[in-house]
Write a protein that binds this DNA or RNA. Structure first.
Length: 443
DNA sequence: GACTGTCCCGCCCTCTGCTGGGAAGAC
DNA sequence: AGTCTTCCCAGCAGAGGGCGGGACAGTC
């Protein structure tokens, strides 16, 4: 008996015979088990909607003696395609670090060597209990890929291969397809076929142009955050944004406890360990770890018309916005606890008001002598003045025991009368040329 | 096979805001 | 002279925009 299997359907020799396709693991053969398949796809299953038919050669043999089984060998008629293709298991191992949707290898059956991927896909598709994914019968056993077309499936299976036959003659980098190689070579030559109609930008691939247009012109942001209003042009940006909600920090510093939400921040953070300062001020050649820091430096230090920030509550002008914030926090924030004036009984809840109030005491001669009308601004001056009333002279000369009310007076006395090296300052009047011990201008 | 759109990773940039050390002035 | 306060400044992290480019699947 000879059967052929149309893509997505089973053609059988007898109209009233149904078969269950299963794998004989020990031999690598595929069995069609006769007569158990009420829930199996029938020949009338209706999967003939393909434009391109792929044929398999199915050879039938009698099963074990006494059994009712018919053993079929299914082989791909497109032998030439298969011969160049490594076993898919190998491809799966190579692909283990590939993209997420490619990573999720299914934990299905172990296929013996020599069973063509198409056969596996078809058998998987017809396996008992397998939900019928309508019109996508070709399922990769190394990942979640499914396809309705054998051509797409065949092409997909090559992604599990390491074969990259198309090599760039400029940098020797290899690619799986001509298209990829061509795009790559365009990056060498600067060829940018996809030009933006609204600006001068041009790109190597159409995808880059589409993305550019979304960023710059259409502002279409298809990827929307389910938690906040954030929306992005790219899925990766939404993924990065989502980490600000989840707190996830996948990128761990190897030298400290810091972990970042994206690779760039980790790279930037590593400069704090290496001491690298890649940004140099073109004027004073000071180096900085971040470009933004340097930019602020240049603006504040080397630019005319430096922007200043006026405090909305007082006349203070501050160079940096962040410092204005500190100023507002320190001086203009309401404090529940009362702040008392150090000179009087007034109380305030805002530090700025307190400081302003205390300045009103600044020129006050708050210290008044209880013996005379003398008044002064500082307590230490009053202390000295009080001695004129009490007669107290606490500073005594160690050489002659003469006493003084002020330390400065004692010092002057000591230098003048007991210091052999003392040379008195002489002030000469420019008019009469007379000499004086202190500055005097003659009339 | 070629074209196209999508996805993903990576890189770099800007803007923003917080922090702490140091200088300078006030007290 | 010592202490306190304010401002200047660089360091550094958070968040997001924009682009480069490789990989891959759908379609013709």
């Amino acid at each position: 008996m000879q059967l052929h299997v149309l893509e997505g359907s089973v053609a059988v020799a007898s109209e009233d015979t149904k078969f269950v396709v299963s794998l004989a693991e020990s031999t690598g053969w595929v069995k069609l088990e006769k007569g158990q398949g009420e829930d199996q796809p029938s020949a009338e299953g209706g999967f003939r909607a393909q434009t391109q038919e792929q044929f398999f050669l199915v050879e039938a043999k009698p099963g074990d003696e006494g059994s009712d089984e018919i053993v079929l060998t299914i082989s791909n008629l497109n032998v030439g395609e298969q011969e160049d293709r490594p076993a898919s298991g190998q491809g799966h191992v190579e692909k283990a670090n590939s993209t997420d949707n490619q990573k999720k290898a299914k934990g299905g059956r172990r296929w013996p060597v020599g069973v063509a991927p198409e056969v596996r896909a078809f058998v998987e598709w017809t396996a008992p209990g397998k939900p019928q994914e309508a019109k996508r019968p070709f399922c990769c056993d190394s990942c979640v890929f499914t396809s309705s077309r054998i051509s797409s499936f065949n092409r997909h299976m090559k992604t599990h291969s390491t074969e990259k036959p198309h090599v760039c003659h400029l940098c020797l980098k290899a690619f799986r397809t001509v298209t990829l190689l061509r795009n790559h070579i365009n990056t060498h030559t600067g060829t940018r076929p996809y030009k933006c109609g609204d600006c001068v930008m041009a790109f190597v691939t159409s995808g880059e142009l589409v993305r550019h247009r979304r960023y710059k012109h259409t502002h279409e942001k298809p990827f929307k955050c389910s938690i906040c209003k954030y929306a992005s042009v790219e899925a990766s940006k939404l993924k990065r944004h989502t980490r600000s909600h989840t707190g996830e920090r996948p990128f761990q510093c190897s030298l400290c406890s810091y972990a970042s939400k994206d690779t760039y921040k980790l790279k930037r953070h590593m400069r704090t360990h290496s001491g690298e300062k890649p940004y140099e001020c073109h004027v004073c050649h000071t180096r900085f770890t971040q470009s933004g820091t340097m930019k602020i430096h240049v603006l504040q230090k080397h630019s005319k018309n430096v922007p200043k920030y006026q405090c909305p509550h007082c006349a203070t002008i501050i160079a940096r916005k962040s410092d204005l914030r500190v100023h507002l926090l320190n001086l203009h924030t309401y404090k529940a606890t009362e702040m008392k004036c150090r000179y009087c009984t007034a109380v305030f809840h805002e530090r700025y008001a307190l400081v302003q109030h205390q300045k009103t005491h600044k020129n006050e001669k708050r210290f008044k002598c209880e013996y005379c009308s003398y008044a002064c601004k500082q307590e230490r001056h009053m202390t000295v003045h009080i001695r004129t009333h009490t007669g107290e002279k606490p500073f005594t000369c160690v050489s002659c025991n003469k006493c003084f009310r002020q330390k400065q007076l004692l010092n002057v006395h000591f230098r003048k009368y007991h210091d052999a090296d003392f040379i008195p300052t002489v002030y000469q009047c420019p008019k009469c040329s007379k000499s004086f011990s202190r500055w005097v201008l003659c009339e």
